[in-house]
Design a protein around this nucleic acid. Structure first.
Lengths: 119, 119
DNA sequence: CTGTATCCTATTTGATACTG
DNA sequence: CAGTATCAAATAGGATACAG
């Protein structure tokens, strides 16, 4: 999740597609490899960093951090830091992200049906 | 869109996420950079290769071909070749892809609202 | 017209070690 | 506990030329 170079054609294309077409913009928000996995696990309430890490198989600390930061920027998660030793940080979905849930449910339904047509 | 190496951890992770969680599987299907753009333009009926290329700004022939092939594999588009000279190839959305449309509409609605919260 | 082939750059993800 | 830093691998995307 390195910083995207703002002069590349690739960057331009992605930006243009997203700004012209809102469903593309939305798909880009949830399209990260771990984004929806994190959403699933936060759907039932807030979790700490370490809890998320344990629940999501194979994710590295690095990727978890990067995804959470990106989702925070995109206003999909809220991050709360408690001034303690040892540190305690909790993550939860924003109001906006919660409104995504019914849509994801439908996507899941569609995916189940579609999968059957794939054999 | 190079061939994915089936021994990499990256590949394993992606596969596992997609097979456990159907909404992730579905999101992966529509997550390509040009996938939804192509869907939009095919939503109102079949189009030829060249028509698609003209309507989608900045896409190269290479990327259009790659995306269409991927979508064909994923059973999102149907490809019809007419045995003529010069060649004529038409693309159209499959039944299954058409059922995705209402969901994309909702995603679009959500995106519009969400965008406002981003300032 | 509808693609392929080749080469190259950009971006994402992973492994590992380390810090406050 | 909750991250960062660094380096390397893998994947995606783009430019251009060319073929059936």
């Amino acid at each position: 999740m390195s910083k995207i170079k703002e002069t590349s054609t690739h960057y331009e294309n992605k930006k243009n597609l997203g700004s012209e077409c809102t469903e593309i913009y939305a798909a880009n928000l949830i399209g990260g490899q771990w984004t929806l996995a994190i959403c699933c696990h936060l759907a039932n309430g807030k979790l700490r960093f370490g809890e998320l890490r344990k629940r999501i198989p194979n994710i590295t600390e690095r990727m978890l951090t990067l995804q959470l930061r990106k989702m925070e920027q995109n206003k999909l998660v809220k991050r709360t830091v408690y001034a303690q030793v040892p540190p305690r940080v909790e993550y939860e979905l924003t109001e906006s992200a919660l409104q995504l849930n019914p849509i994801l449910k439908q996507l899941e339904e569609w995916g189940k049906k579609h999968r059957k047509t794939m054999d």
